[in-house]
Computed example of a mutant assay.
Amino acid sequence: MPAKPHAKFELASAPFEVAPLRARLLDDAAGAYASFEGWVRNHNEGRPVHGLMYEAYTALAEAEGQRIVEEAAQRFAITGVHCVHRTGELAIGELAVWVGVGAGHRDAAFAACRWVIDEVKARVPIWKHERYADGDRQWLHPVAATTEGSTPKEDTP
């Protein structure tokens, strides 16, 4: 009987290293690894951005994020999945969200990775507050993909 896949969701209030997270997904049954990294970019919809802040309702965000990775472990033939989302003030270029997936084959790893980030953006109560170059600030709300394979209007992160 295969071991239960590693499934972990975390919020991080400070920058984090990906290598130790990836190491948690190492498994002799895994022949593939896929990951997603979302970084803070310097623009949104044609407006220069100076940085952003993520706020979360921690208890609810952690519970819903954990449900998502556990669902992924049930839904896909994977050996492990881990997701970390930042909160607090982030500068341009900083890592905002990371998803890593180990699987026996690449198709399952890629599919699970994409599914996890799409579900996190749609379901986890994390709010993004962008600071624009002109001094304006704006709360942004994620827009979920409406069909399989489509791209949300508001890209991650």
Rank of each mutant, 00 (worst) to 15 (best):
G93F: 14
F110T: 07
G80Y: 08
E154D: 08
H50N: 07
N44T: 12
E64C: 01
A12R: 12
A72L: 06
A122L: 14
A144S: 04
V81D: 00
L21H: 05
D107A: 10
P15A: 08
P152G: 05
H85E: 14
E130A: 02
A111H: 08
R86D: 08
Y33K: 03
A7N: 06
D136V: 09
E71R: 07
D136L: 11
P48D: 14
V49N: 12
L21E: 10
P125T: 08
K121W: 03
Y57D: 09
H6P: 00
L90F: 13
G80V: 06
V120C: 10
R41Q: 15
R131S: 15
V101K: 04
F16W: 13
V69L: 06
V18T: 08
E119A: 15
I92N: 15
I92Y: 08
N44D: 08
P5T: 07
L11R: 06
K153Q: 13
D134H: 02
A59Y: 00
E10M: 14
E55V: 04
Q74C: 03
T87C: 09
A34N: 06
R131V: 12
L11A: 15
S150F: 00
G100M: 11
T58W: 00
Q66T: 08
E119R: 15
H141T: 13
E17V: 08
D118S: 06
R106D: 09
V101H: 05
R86G: 01
E71M: 03
R123A: 11
R24N: 05
I117P: 02
L60Q: 13
R22T: 10
P142Y: 00
M53V: 10
L25I: 11
L52Y: 13
C113Q: 04
D136K: 06
G100E: 15
S35G: 10
A73R: 11
A29G: 15
A145T: 01
D27P: 01
W39R: 12
Y33F: 15
P15L: 03
L21G: 15
A112P: 02
E17M: 11
K121L: 12
G104W: 03
